[in-house]
Design a protein around this nucleic acid. Structure first.
Lengths: 129, 129
DNA sequence: CTTGACCTTCCACTATACTGGAAGGTCAAG
DNA sequence: CTTGACCTTCCAGTATAGTGGAAGGTCAAG
């Protein structure tokens, strides 16, 4: 399969596939006599795996690690489980941080909504922030 | 006040102040005969305002907009209120997105924690993702 | 006179996941 | 023979908020 065909099969662009190759997520493809990349069919599942990983919020580096484990013949399940656990922890931390920020902003906003513009102290630039 | 002194007064670095000047958040400072920047005292409140804005998750561009309004002599309160409202909406959207992602990841993770590594289908790379 | 702590400018780099574009090769169809 | 749709490589840029470092000027103290 040529690069554009492969990319289209998973809704990506040829550029993205070259980029993934550069980042080590795709092995260097065989080349046709004219120099064009020639992908085997399993590249499609590999790309779909990469997309599932992205959907789960994993970075390309993390997905690359999983693929490396798989590529040396080991089942990456344990690694995947650990990564997913870490991802859950990270997400919880991020959500907590954003929730705290939201509370801060809400306080500022409530004061601004209730307040009197004339109360602005020039030295403070804006009394609502 | 010299740049290092001013920066230290608010816990920032001289580099950061030059960067803020470059981004238009600080007006170009007067220069001493030797070329050193010479900041008036109100620069400290301006920097503290910038920091409060950052604490509220505003971007430097948004803070710069507020300061511009203030600098042409208008009270930026209405602008600030609108920005804070937008910030609340953005935060809610982000939190919702992360929460949905967390649910997806939790599903994958639960399957991985319960599952049998032998079930891995090589074609699918990892049955848990 | 030198040392050290300041200050100046300017350029590059960090991280992430691509995207855009230039310059050029390949190939089937009309 | 040309046109268009492919493909190749490589370089640069996107967004954010700075940080790091080079090369050099200034100034008070010892």
């Amino acid at each position: 399969m040529r690069i554009g065909e492969t990319a289209a099969a998973v809704g990506m662009t040829a550029k993205t596939l070259r980029f993934y190759e550069d980042r080590g997520l795709l092995p260097a493809a065989d080349r046709a006599p004219n120099g064009y990349r020639d992908y085997p069919h399993e590249t499609v599942s590999r790309l779909e795996f990469i997309r599932r990983g992205r959907t789960a919020g994993l970075t390309l580096a993390q997905i690359g690690d999983i693929l490396s484990v798989r590529d040396i013949g080991q089942a990456p399940c344990v690694h995947v489980r650990d990564l997913l656990a870490k991802q859950l922890r990270d997400l919880d931390a991020q959500i907590a941080e954003l929730t705290a920020l939201r509370a801060t902003v809400a306080e500022f906003h409530d004061a601004a909504a209730a307040g009197d513009p004339a109360a602005c102290d020039p030295e403070r630039i804006c009394s609502y922030l």
